[in-house]
Amino acid sequence: MRTTIPLVITFVVGLIMLGEAFIPHWMYRIVTENILEWGVILAAAAFVLGLINLIQVNLPKVLAREPEWGYKLVMLVALVATLVVGFMGGGDRLSNGQAYKWVFDFVFVPLNATMFALLAFYIASAAFRAFRARNMEATVLLVAAVVVMIGRVPIGEQISERLPQIVNWLMEVPNTAARRAIFIGAALGAVATGLRIILGIERSHLGGD
């Protein structure tokens, strides 16, 4: 019983949504649109749960002064502060001088940009570590990578006029080919996963049987 009801719901809803691809009539669409809308509402409602979870996880640790509780405190304070600032200012939130805009410009933007910028450094260290021509395939990959890296920036063009063309070929032919293979495989995997769930073969999420 514990698993039967969810399985039935999954099957019915799954079948309805699957039918959307084959039944174009607007009356049918109204049903599916409603289901989707419930999904959106559910997702939005879950934000409240997310907030509760954040507090549940972090607040007790701060209260109990567990190791590194300081981080959690900063998190909680920032959470409350941003929430308050977000409610202030209404539609004008995005104008200069507003607290929300200030938080955005001077807290969020630098932090976000910093995180993204980290990529440049991490790519350097990961590439240094991983790119070793230890076998045939690795050598091919390595050469291709170097060509693309150099060919994508102006210096490549100064080295050889042909380089950008080679890069374009590499990106458009072998690279695209591999991507397509991954797409197709993944798409089929997705179809199979979807069907497995709808048909109730897959029930790991219900704790198996």
Partner: peptide, 12 residues
């Protein structure tokens, strides 16, 4: 890619 979709089958 698709290996991701095969994992749960494998593990179970």
């Amino acid at each position: 890619g698709e290996e991701l979709f095969a994992v749960s089958a494998y593990l179970s």
